[in-house]
């Protein structure tokens, strides 16, 4: 029987490890060098927060379009703005409401500011990349949709989402799944029509169009009234860009927007680490089995020779 040559074994394993490391590194480099950046002709919505009057018509429209359950309170009941969750946080999306409007009292502003909250439909969605059953899809039209039949209800996307958007059907004990705004993809967006909330809005708060045109429009709007608007298009750059973007007359951090998210898609923060995982899984077992064999072989041989 051919004996394992210790020197050759170490040489071989080291060479293998280095090759794997090199390919891994090359992959990282190419991935980090070019981010996806979104589909070129994807649609989007530009929200002008200065125009919203908090009438909640968008909430009602969403409810009807998506066939959501009857609300706890009528949609023309404005006392909901005083509702707060634990920690004084404003209302958020739930399994029964894919969009909510919140009120912000801003010092020095004559009227309160109302802000509609729903999925922002990221160009590179963290929910999508975090989903291990691939339930999510970013469509070329711009919507981030999901397949509830595939969803196993693990709620990883709820943690991954930088905007805390996905909600969970806690009311369903048998098959709880994640629930969120799909930009009315099924009934409208895929036919070139805007989401129901956009069309229902009596104030024309939301402009529907190609995302790249909306970015131009947003900057033009700010340029035309620099005294009115804050020079920031929220969603143009945040987390790699989002399909829903916002302009405002109040600094975004004062009205519940996270302005510390940075321009990198959430995926970029974990990509380097995740690239190592397959390498570890392939090489480590072989490597350590080898070490184990080397360490125990001697004793095994010794035992054999003693017996002989």
């Amino acid at each position: 029987m051919k004996k394992i040559d210790r020197r050759n074994f170490i040489k071989g394993s080291l060479a293998g490890g280095l090759t794997a490391a090199a390919t891994g590194k090359a992959k990282n480099a190419s991935a980090a060098g070019g981010t996806f950046g979104g589909y070129p002709d994807s649609m989007g919505v530009l929200v002008d927060l200065t125009k919203c009057i908090g009438c909640r018509t968008c909430e009602a429209a969403c409810n009807k379009e998506q066939g959501l359950p009857e609300p706890d309170r009528p949609f023309d009941d404005y006392s909901v703005f005083d509702e707060h969750r634990h920690g004084g946080l404003p209302r958020r999306t739930t399994e029964g409401a894919y969009t909510v409007v919140n009120k912000y009292e801003v010092e020095g502003r004559e009227h309160p500011l109302f802000r509609k909250f729903q999925c922002n439909h990221c160009n590179e969605p963290a929910c999508l990349t975090s989903c291990f059953v691939n339930a999510y899809t970013k469509t070329p039209e711009g919507a981030v949709i999901y397949n509830p039949k595939v969803c196993v209800g693990c709620r990883t996307c709820m943690i991954a989402c930088p905007f805390y958007v996905p909600a969970y059907s806690y009311s369903s004990p048998i098959n709880p799944v994640v629930k969120k705004c799909i930009m009315c993809y099924d009934t409208r967006l895929q036919f070139g029509r805007p989401p129901a909330c956009v069309e229902a809005c009596p104030q024309g708060v939301m402009t529907f169009g190609k995302r790249k045109d909306l970015i131009d429009l947003a900057h033009e709007t700010i340029e035309n009234k620099p005294d009115k608007y804050v020079d920031h298009v929220y969603g143009e750059k945040e987390v790699g860009g989002t399909s829903w973007m916002y302009i405002s007359d109040v600094p975004f951090e004062e009205i519940g927007f996270d302005t510390h998210l940075g321009p990198d898609p959430i995926l970029n923060y974990v990509k380097d680490f995740l690239a190592i995982v397959p390498m570890v899984l392939c090489i480590w077992p072989a490597l350590f089995t080898g070490f184990h064999l080397l360490a125990t072989r001697k004793n095994a041989n010794k035992d054999d020779s003693n017996k002989a």
């Binding site: 909640r56 429209a61 409810n63 009857e70 009528p74 949609f75």
Partner: peptide, 14 residues
């Protein structure tokens, strides 16, 4: 449309 008036949610008043 607004779930109000005649169509207001039953159980919860206000």
């Amino acid at each position: 449309f607004y779930n109000t008036g005649h169509y207001a949610p039953k159980e919860k008043p206000g």
